[in-house]
Design a binder for these strands. Structure first.
Lengths: 200, 200
DNA sequence: GATTATTTTAATCAAATGATTAAAATATTT
DNA sequence: AAATATTTTAATCATTTGATTAAAATAATC
């Protein structure tokens, strides 16, 4: 059979079960409030096995954090740096792709921000934010269009309109279904509004 | 003497010192990551005395949380509900007052959101959000102006542009002095941009 | 200066939690 | 079926952490 890669073990390996559980618990409760016992239970295995696979809570956390940072920046960077895209195209693509990502990972922003805040030293270098805000293709295009306003203001507004609803979700929205609908609507709205801001 | 209220004790009472320390540590690290020993140390007293004044970590936390919720909504409600203010006046006042509040309390939004997320049950009722989003004077004015778009979209954008920079501060901004300057600038920008969004 | 109130010291608890271990049980492979 | 690998059981450790206690020390008040 052509599609037989490695069907030797179960559909999801134990390691994967643990990682999936860690992903869920860590992103939901944060590092400090997470107990390794929670992760083991969520994974459907016992604490001893968890510590057999990953030697410590910290190691498991780093794994998840690295993954989440790549998710978070993985969507932005290719767009922000793409010289082929016009400013308007960037705005449209960013809103669309970012909201799609956040609909699938609603906990992502609050998790990453909270943990970086709790332990900033460990991230200072790993973040490519400085580049996005100062040297990216996006920044240059913004400067060209509006030399009178610091580009960071525009970018923060764009990110704010996009990310904030997911961060404030626990406070602002109770109906999960409605929330998803609104966020779908929001893709076009944000692109439109971002353009309006540049013209104002 | 006319201005002698109660000069019997020190300039700041022990109780106040503890509360101030709790305010600082809780809002910086969150409930789960805060140790009562940290608070005691920050207050310059010992753990025994802290537990003598406030019988538990939880009690002290509730005190701070109540205070922070009042801060957070105390600025919004009087504006959002004020029928005397036009929509544009509301936008201007909100941006101005909210950013002033956040400059003095940069940790406020991330703290409140994180803790509500960690324990939503305890807040479901205490939040007047539902009213702000559905029945406030602001909502009515928005609906009048733009019947084609769900008002919550506008409000979320306004809040996003205002609050998000303070939430993302640990990631986006390293220079504290520069950050303050940018936020000052932002007051007028947000009001202007919010208006532009309504017209677009 | 004696009395009262406040704070510290230092020891200690109990519970929670991250982590380890060895042996038994179960599943997988050969 | 035998050999090997995986997982569970269950007990146990060492720390951390919230909380309490009684006695001593210090400060404030009368």
């Amino acid at each position: 059979m052509a599609k037989s890669k490695e069907l030797k073990k179960k559909d999801t390996s134990t390691e994967e079960k643990i990682i999936a559980a860690a992903r869920k618990v860590f992103t939901q409760k944060g590092y400090a409030a997470t107990r390794t016992r929670d992760i083991a239970e969520e994974a459907g295995i016992n604490l001893a096995l968890l510590n057999y696979y990953f030697r410590s809570k910290e190691k498991l956390f780093q794994l998840i954090m690295t993954e989440k940072l790549q998710q978070l920046f993985g969507v932005i960077l290719p767009i922000v740096n793409n010289d082929k895209l016009t400013l308007d195209e960037k705005l449209e693509t960013l809103a669309e792709n970012y909201i799609n990502l956040l609909i699938d990972n609603p906990d992502l922003p609050l998790f990453v921000i909270s943990e970086i805040r709790a332990n900033p030293e460990g991230f200072k270098d790993r973040l490519q934010v400085h580049h996005i805000l100062r040297n990216s293709s996006l920044v240059h295009q913004i400067r060209e269009k509006r030399a009178d306003v610091e580009p960071v203001h525009f970018i923060v507004s764009l990110l704010g309109m996009t990310i904030f609803p997911f961060i404030a979700k626990p406070i602002l929205f109770s109906d999960d279904q409605l929330f998803k609908l609104l966020m779908e609507e929001r893709k076009i709205l944000i692109a439109k509004w971002a353009k309006a801001i540049f013209e104002s």
